[in-house]
């Protein structure tokens, strides 16, 4: 699309990179939502979208380190979170109240996260092209 600046290619390129936010609400095990949600994040990262992930409610448990899933007969996927950095998915936020309600602290998580207030998360949501809840 030509925006009138004459630089068609660059405009088209910008049009194809969107701010997309994943709202991870589900516990990692018990349902597949969290795992399949992560698969979507990886695909969209491969498409070089401008991604943000926010973990709220039981969604936070997906990031807790040292998960042992052998006894429930389920393949764990906490290691997969480690590749997000390689895909340059760096905006990974955790809701402070959700964290405190669950007795978690930032050191409990397997990857680097940033703790945010609900108001801050809302402001980031305002700025997105699309929000995908899993």
């Amino acid at each position: 699309m030509n925006d009138g600046t004459g630089n068609v290619d660059e405009t088209e390129n910008d049009q194809n990179v969107k701010k997309i936010m994943f709202v991870m609400r589900s516990a990692p095990h018990g349902t597949i939502y969290s795992y399949e949600g992560l698969e979507t994040v990886l695909i969209m990262a491969a498409f070089e979208q401008d991604l943000t992930m926010v973990f709220i409610g039981d969604g936070l448990f997906a990031l807790v380190k040292d998960q042992m899933t052998d006894d429930i007969g389920i393949k764990g996927f906490i290691k997969t979170y480690g590749v997000l950095d390689d895909y340059e998915v760096e905006k990974i936020y955790v809701d402070r109240i959700s964290m405190e309600e669950r007795g978690l602290v930032p050191e409990d998580f397997a990857i680097d996260i940033e703790v945010k207030e609900a108001e801050e998360i809302a402001a980031i949501m305002e700025n997105q092209h699309a929000i995908i809840p899993y």
Binding site: K18, I20, T40, I43, M44, F47, Q49, H129, A130, I132
Partner: peptide, 18 residues
Amino acid sequence: SGLGQLTEMTIEADRLIT
């Protein structure tokens, strides 16, 4: 088809409704 289709439609649409 693949998740690329979800990505593509999200980029193209004004609004994604889940």
